[in-house]
Simulated assay, not measured.
Amino acid sequence: MVIRKSDALYAVAILAVSLVFGYIAGFRPFGIGMDFRNYQSFYDMMRPREALDYFRYEPGFVHLASEFKRLFSSDYMYFAAALSTAALAVKFSTLRNLRHPILTSLFYLAVWYPLHENTQVRVAFATSLLFVASQKMFEGRWAWFAGLAVASTLFHLTAAVGAAGLAIAFYLSRFDFKYALGYIVLCGAVLYASFAFVMRYAVQLQPLLLEQGGGSSPPTILSAANVAVLLFLISFILSGSANDLRRRTFFIMTAIGFVLFFVFLPVPVMAQRFRELFFVFMTFIAFDYRIGSRTLLQASLAFILAGWSLYSSISYGLFSD
């Protein structure tokens, strides 16, 4: 096998960038941020050869943390840095063959790294597995897709919804857009109509669904980030960029995220979680087109979304105490 010099250099670049940002996520040079103390407390509570099933986190994350602690006898910062580095390296590798991989990687770092690897490390690793699963799906390797989808749920249960969304988006991408989007809206309307009935019983099983989540204000449809994403999707369609199966799939995946976000607004934690889970796949289409006069608007919107998201993350305290 011959390894091209460009591939080798890109692999080195991926590893270097992943290590730098993995270090930031694990060792917190700019401040502790959010959720870090919760994960650190969980990690410190684990003891060798003790039962792990009483921890509230998913079993894949718990057992991986336990094995890391047993093998290296290190504190949580090392584990967080290693897991974040791995998640980033996997994600950057899946972005390698896009039209503008460097711009796309920078987009991911600005929009999603502060929230995922830097804050919600379980979600970060789960979505990295879903990124790879999506590539296997396009290759028609459905056994791999199913295996990676199951593995992702072992790190965050909502990944099961993301995997189902990928399969649905892939199927709908074969149809005309107006039928695909009409079907999504119709399903959303049915879910919305039955929402009160379903949630009446769901809340009895899990009262935490009524919480706002971390004391933050309830999410709104017309937030700056949501408007930027919506305008991007509209311009993406109008410019003709959704011209292959892959781009249509990720477009539909993002559109499904909008519908789920609207349906679950009465339960802010779920609405925000589904939004984050589905919108992250917009990364694949943020700059996967030739940037020219026809696509200048959508490229500008992607830049605006990246800048606004990074500013919001810093302002919100995701990097500081």
Score class of each variant (00 low, 15 high):
205 L>V: 15
125 F>Q: 03
153 T>F: 10
254 T>R: 00
104 T>Q: 15
194 S>P: 00
247 R>D: 14
254 T>D: 01
57 Y>K: 11
79 F>Q: 03
204 Q>H: 06
279 F>E: 01
55 F>N: 06
307 G>W: 10
308 W>M: 15
283 T>V: 06
251 F>D: 12
250 F>H: 10
202 A>W: 09
19 L>D: 02
115 L>E: 15
75 D>M: 09
264 F>M: 08
304 I>A: 15
56 R>L: 03
214 G>R: 07
233 L>R: 01
244 D>M: 12
254 T>W: 00
209 L>E: 07
285 I>S: 05
180 A>T: 04
171 Y>M: 09
290 R>L: 13
235 S>H: 07
75 D>V: 11
165 G>N: 00
270 M>S: 07
191 L>D: 03
124 A>V: 09
107 F>T: 15
10 Y>D: 13
3 I>F: 11
82 A>K: 08
98 L>D: 09
73 S>D: 15
39 Y>G: 11
135 Q>S: 12
132 V>L: 14
167 A>S: 13
205 L>S: 14
262 F>K: 07
110 A>S: 07
243 N>I: 04
195 F>M: 09
224 A>F: 08
280 V>R: 05
315 S>M: 15
250 F>W: 05
67 E>T: 13
213 G>S: 12
218 P>H: 05
256 I>V: 10
9 L>T: 00
59 P>S: 13
6 S>D: 12
69 K>C: 11
183 Y>K: 09
162 G>W: 03
321 D>S: 15
262 F>E: 09
68 F>C: 10
20 V>L: 13
125 F>D: 04
13 A>V: 02
299 A>S: 14
220 T>E: 04
202 A>C: 10
80 A>G: 02
289 Y>L: 06
296 L>I: 12
133 A>H: 06
188 G>P: 08
230 L>S: 14
297 L>E: 01
276 E>W: 01
296 L>H: 02
293 S>A: 11
133 A>N: 03
193 A>H: 09
293 S>M: 07
8 A>E: 11
309 S>R: 08
74 S>K: 05
131 F>P: 11
220 T>G: 02
253 M>V: 03
5 K>R: 08
295 T>F: 07
241 S>F: 03
54 Y>Q: 08
201 Y>I: 05
201 Y>K: 06
84 S>N: 03
30 F>L: 06
40 Q>K: 03
236 F>C: 02
37 R>I: 11
93 S>E: 06
236 F>G: 02
63 H>I: 11
156 H>F: 15
272 Q>Y: 08
254 T>G: 00
162 G>A: 09
120 Q>I: 14
131 F>W: 10
268 P>T: 07
213 G>K: 09
57 Y>D: 13
174 R>S: 12
34 M>H: 08
134 S>L: 02
29 P>D: 07
175 F>K: 06
279 F>W: 01
205 L>E: 15
266 P>Q: 08
256 I>R: 00
60 G>K: 10
314 I>Q: 12
97 N>A: 01
194 S>I: 01
91 K>H: 01
45 M>L: 11
43 Y>S: 08
14 I>D: 00
180 A>F: 04
65 A>S: 10
118 N>H: 11
92 F>K: 01
236 F>D: 05
46 M>S: 04
82 A>V: 11
130 L>S: 07
74 S>F: 07
74 S>C: 07
11 A>T: 12
217 S>H: 15
39 Y>Q: 02
4 R>S: 14
132 V>H: 03
80 A>M: 07
291 I>K: 10
212 Q>F: 03
